[in-house]
Every structure is written in C-alpha cells, then in structure tokens.
Nucleic acid binder design. Structure first.
Lengths: 365, 365
DNA sequence: TGGATTTATGAAACCGTTTACAGGGAACAC
DNA sequence: GTGTTCCCTGTAAACGGTTTCATAAATCCA
C-alpha cells in the first residue's frame, strides 16, 4: 500500500503538500496539485483513514444501532439511511442488538472511536439508558425513542396518531367491536399503537377496556395465531387492527383458513404499509409509514449536528403516518355482515401451522 | 476522552503496560492488570480504534457491499452477516450501490483502510470488475458471484438447481405450458434462475424457446404487470414460475383481479421463501433460500481467510435451495383446469395500478 | 553463592496522517 | 533598493496506540 511518503517522494514534494492536495486544494499551486494527483493515481494511493481520523478526530462514519432486523420495514429504513449518508460521503457502521443487554453496551463501546455519531432506535427502557451513555461521548439521533434524552435529537413516527386514525376509520365505517393484535410490550412503537387504538375508541365513546387485545411480537405467525383467539372471542369482533403489517398478513391467512371473508366478515387494518401490503388478498388497508424517509431524516439531522456543533437545541421531528385505505377494511356497514358459523380451517401445509382448535362446532357472536 | 497515557499516569505504570493489558493479558502481572483495569474503568477508557488499527493494520471490521437493499431477503441476509460478525467481535460497514458504477468504485475506495475484508454481492459484470480491484488490497468473499475471481472465496446459492427443481415439479404435476417472470437481465441470480427454468423444460423434452418469458425487476409491481401479459398469451400458460417471491406475490394479486384462481386456473411458484410466502392466498410454493445462512457462511469464510492468511486456495460453498411445496402450485392435472374466459379485473384501489387491457373480450388457450 | 533463566516493566521507535509555524521568493508600492 | 504582501511549500510536532528491545528483579539450579 502506497503511503503519503511514497507519493511525496515520487512527486518530489513534501508530505505536507500532498496532504494539502487532499484537504485544501486551494492552498497548493494548481500545477503541483495536478502533478501530485497524477502520481497518486499511478501509485493507487488512498489516504489511510485510520491515520487521518487519528489526527482529525473525524471518521466520516456513523453507527446505526437497531433493536432488530427483519422484514421489509428495516430494509427500507436502512436503505434510507444508506442513501442520504453516502450522498454526503458518510459510511455506516451497522449493528442490531437482538441479543442481550450487555451486548448492546459492548457493541456501542466497540463503535466508539470509529464513528462521529450514532443513529439509534431506542424503543425500550434499556436501550434508552445505553443511548444516554453513548450521548456522553458522541452525538446521538434517536429513532422512535420511548422517551427523549437531554441533548439528543430525534425523529419519530406519530404512532399514536396513526393508530387512532386507523381505528377512527373503522368506527366511521360502523364498527363498534374492534380487536387489536398488539406488538411486544416493551417496544414503544407497539405501546404507542396500542395507546392510539384506545384513544380512538375512547374518543368515539367506546370502552377501550372492553376491547380484545391479543398479544403479539410483530411476526407473521403471531398474527396468524391471533386469528383463532379473535374468532373465538364473544362477542366476535367485526374488525381487527394489527400493530404491523406482518401480523395483519398472518391474520388474513388465518381468517381465510377459518372461512371468514375479509372485509365482508371481518375488517382488517395493518400498520407500516410494506411494499407487499397492496398485493394482499384483499389489498391491505394500513397506516403508511415512510421508513426510508425516517432513516433519511435521521441522517440529515445527524449531519446538521455534526456541522453546526452543539449549539442547536434538542430538536424533534415527528413524521405523520397516513392511512392508506385499500380493501381489507371494507366499506360496508358491519350490521350487514354475514354471520357465518366458525368452520374448521381448510387444510394447509404451512410448515409451522399452529395446533387446530379441537371439538369446536360452532361459534356465534 | 481518556487516553492510554491518562490511564498509565493514574495507575503509575507505563503506557506499554496498559497496552499489554488490553492485548496480551498473560504478559502482565495479574495484580497490576487488575489495578489498571479498575483505573481504566473509572476513567471510562476505551482504546482508540483508529490509533490501534494504525499500527496493527487490522480494523476488526469488514465491508458489506450489496447491489440493492429492499424486501425481506436483504434484511435476512444482513441479519445473518451481523449475527456471525458480532459473535466474533467484528463490526460491519454497510453500503449498497444502487446508484451508478463510479459510485461503487468510490465507495469501495472509501472503505479501504477501514476494513479487513469485503463481503460483496457481485451479481453483474461491472461489480465483478470492482471486486477484482478490491481484491488486490483486501480479502474478498463473494456472494452469488456471476463469475469467480482468482483468490476470492465465494458462497453461492444454486439458483440453477433451485429453478430447475421448481419447473420439474410443475412438469411432474402435468404442466406443459409454463411461463416465467424473469428478473433483471444483468443480475446473475436472475439469469441463473432463467437458465434453470430452461434446463428444466429441456430435460422434460419441452422446447424452452417456446416458453413465454416476461421481463421483470424483482419488484412486486413487475409481477403484477406480468399477469396481464401472461393471461393474454396464446396458448395461455397453465403455470408460472416467478424469479422471486415479490414478483410471484404481485402476480398472484393480478391473477386474482382478472378472476383467475390459483392454483386451479394457473399454478404459481416463486423463489426465496420470504417469511410472508406461507401466508399468501394461496400459500406460495417457492424455492427456499437460506438468506441468513448465506450471509453467515460468508462471514465465517471471511474469518477463516483473515485467520489463516492467504494459504488456503480459493474455495466456494454452494448452498442448495429446496423446494417448499405449499398450495399455489396445486396438485391437479392441468388437463382438468377450468378454462374460463378472461374478464375485466375487479375494481382495485391499488394506487399504482397498471393500465387495464382494453376491448379484450375473451382469451382462450 | 553466583550464573542462568524467567518474569514484569519501561523506553522509544513507529504506524500515516494533519496542521501550526516558519521561510523563501515573487510581485508590488514607495 | 528596501519593506510589505501574498503565495506556495517544507519542517516537525502532534494524534493514541503497539511492539521491539533492553533491563531490573525474582526465581532457579548446581
């Protein structure tokens, strides 16, 4: 590997001049610069980033810490981050901490010194604490934080609002008995969506305490399993709000197997608007979240912080999700819904199929 | 930020001793080590990675270069990489080069010096050339390379085999007129799947030249649009093989809108086996690819190379995908398929709906 | 008891940059 | 011709570690 010295020697100049060519073009005679660049090209010289950041204390890299990594949502998020970051000459150091808590601390420590800042999705209490620690060393931009930290900017999706909109829409269609498939309890997105769900009910004068809430974990299978629970519940809900699209899609599959039509028998609404949502059967009504924009905004904020120093006060951008009405929520008055008996599901060769309900003849609302 | 000197001073030892504590515990008296670690903890000292890698020439990081970043497949891939990397104390520097070609070169240059190696998905000619250049500087492990490069290990999915299996299965069910929705031409995965498709036909004595191949780009919408083309083709295919699940799912939606039943009117098979595949209507028969394992294997290879030096010869792991038979491929003899006329699609509020076919009365095979 | 060996530590060179400071020469004003 | 500027370039000191080599103290063995 050629070093700055090799280039300097070959070009017959000092290393300082070579360095200047790469940092402050204006300070060096255009002809000399040209010459040096030529030599450097021939030698395949690339300034050593480690040496560089040792003196400048800048790495042109930031860390991205995600609680998990699956499904379309995270692809999109990372895509948005990557796009804006590279457009500005930054690299991203990625890590997801789907392991234990010390792991997260370890990882963030390992990142320190390699990065100029951290973009972190801190959706639970533990990770917020870690974020606060990290903040002492480098700038931090939070994604959907479960609470704000002094000196951290944040960009968040208004989950409460999104969920409320979804529920309100269902109520507007005439639904009074709406169930929810919730996400992981410790996850703030999940909690906020549940809150929004309840607020929506309350605002319409319905009792949120009476509504069925089935726990879930954001995976398709959880939604699939929730189907049976929901259908057995009495009175049977006429609509279901799932905390994300994955679970909504799992739910759709389950309802279908039980012989229930969506939206004719039961309306379903999801959250996220993954690319596949519009291609479901029926096309899934869902709350559109601009995942890529979420990441992009975070990067822009980080760049601002890095450029402007610490003078700007803590800022928070809230992205408003928008309800994307497709067909799974229906347009019918649920009073007209066909009341059909609960039948055995059609046979399925789904590998991870849940145990079937046994000896259940008929379930009527 | 505390430096090694601060720790040394506070502990009353030389910096060499402190350094040794972090690198070669055995070389230093246990008591002294204990003491130093304590002081270091109090001072919140973390060795500066830049300085460290300046002398050691190791970064404990590797670059991951992906051609694109969307959908479940890439999430899973990155997840696999991340998991194994962190388990071995490595960080990952991520970049996708969905932009132009120089961009890729620039990015890989920017990575040089920050990484010990590169894991790169080089699915087209251009990126292979870049990979070859990168190889001159650091070890490279290729993911699904369109061709091998001297001195690069690789881990690949046997796309040809997977596609052939899918087609053979369809043929085994009695299908003789099978169409394909292909992926991007320059993409090797897409090309191999097409090759496998043709091989499967050839082996069964069918003419691959006669088969309808609709171009696509791996996105859902491409599959959706392909639906109309396929239905209009005469004789109308009784089965379709899509080069990935996204397109298969788009196709499913399109067929449904045109009033065609899957698998009763047309059988559909996808590729990838994304988490959602099993929850489609009907559950999607697809070729299962272990995306996370693909990434994990690549990391393990990289670690081996990094540990063992360049002594080991070029090695290539080929992962065999397996056909996951669900319901979209059906089990019927297609001779029994109902021949129904092509109707106007049901109204859809899909935002990005393609223009409808005009003035077409009926399409019979 | 003394030389050989082992163990624990320190001194200093080095990794490849950036940058403050200094200096040389040309252009300009007087 | 001298003093100022301005422009360009070089010298050398950081930056924060690792590692070779040297050395002092402790242990071993005869």
């Amino acid at each position: 590997m050629a070093t700055i010295r090799d280039v300097a020697r070959a070009a017959g100049v000092s290393i300082a001049t070579v360095s200047r060519v790469y940092n402050n073009q204006t300070l060096v005679n255009p002809q000399t610069a040209q010459h040096i660049l030529k030599i450097a090209g021939d030698l395949d010289y690339v300034p050593n980033p480690a040496a560089r950041s040792l003196t400048t204390r800048r790495t042109h890299t930031f860390g991205v810490l995600l609680p998990d990594l699956f499904g379309e949502f995270y692809s999109e998020l990372i895509r948005g981050i990557d796009l804006i970051a590279h457009r500005n000459g930054f690299q991203i150091l990625l890590s997801s901490f789907f392991r234990n808590s010390e792991d997260l601390v370890m990882t963030s420590k390992a990142m320190l010194g390699r990065i100029d800042g951290v973009i972190m999705m801190a959706t639970d209490e533990r990770s917020i604490n870690t974020a606060a620690k990290v903040r002492k060393k480098v700038p931090v931009v939070l994604l959907n934080p479960c609470k704000m930290i002094e000196g951290c900017h944040a960009v968040a999706v208004d989950n409460v609002r999104g969920a409320k909109d979804a529920v309100s829409h269902l109520i507007g269609l005439g639904h009074r008995n709406i169930a929810m498939v919730a996400g992981p309890e410790e996850n703030i997105d999940a909690r906020d969506r549940l809150t929004g769900f309840r607020q929506g009910l309350t605002e319409a004068g319905l009792d949120p305490g009476a509504a069925l809430v089935v726990p879930g974990d954001f995976r398709e299978l959880a939604g699939y399993k929730a189907g049976a629970t929901i259908l057995r519940h009495k009175p049977r809900p006429t609509a279901v709000f799932a905390a994300n699209d994955g679970m909504a899609i799992g739910l759709l599959a389950s309802l279908r197997e039980w012989g229930f039509g969506v939206p004719d028998d039961i309306a379903v609404v999801g959250f996220d608007d993954v690319a596949l949502a519009g291609f479901m059967n029926p096309p899934l009504t869902t709350v559109h979240v601009d995942a890529s924009g979420l990441g992009g905004h975070a990067v822009e904020m980080m760049l601002e912080v890095l450029a402007g120093g610490a003078d700007s006060e803590t800022r928070r951008i809230v992205l408003s999700p928008s309800l994307k009405i497709r067909q799974s929520c229906g347009t019918l008055d649920p009073a007209q819904l066909v009341r059909r008996p609960l039948m055995e599901p059609r046979p399925s060769n789904r590998d991870d199929a849940t145990p079937r309900l046994q000896g259940e003849e008929e379930v009527q609302p």
